[in-house]
Amino acid sequence: MKMNRRTLLCNAVKLAVVGAVGANLSKAYASAEDAMKKIGEFAGGAAPTEGRISLKAPEIAENGNTVPISFEVDSPMTEDDFVESVMIVAEGNPLPGVATFHFSSASGTCRASTRMRLAKTQRVVAIAKMNDGSVFTDARDIKVTIGGCGG
């Protein structure tokens, strides 16, 4: 495996995240370890690199039940060079999976938007898998506020 600064950084993040799991005794939420496992299965052994995919989400969600998220992957989306799928994972939800989007050259571009649930303040990760097997990632920390009025 080729090690560059980005994969190193990525692995360092993984270690830090996995390290933090030991301290997290809450059973109600998925652990970052579960999330990493899911990402690993999706990536099929490839190390995710930062770049090419950009994930957009509000910094502070007004309500965790409906949080708009969108992403875009830089790709020509031709029959020879396209994004196969993009997976969204939430590290702090009861289950880490959010959705997996599948694209084709007929998609024209690789972008999509949806609305998701966030059980608490957490990190949301997007991973894009290209048709050549390379994998790219981006992540956002989203704060979930607790309303005043039965919120």
Partner: peptide, 8 residues
């Protein structure tokens, strides 16, 4: 004003 995180 805010009541906790809600904007009244």
């Amino acid at each position: 004003k805010h009541i906790r995180a809600d904007h009244l």
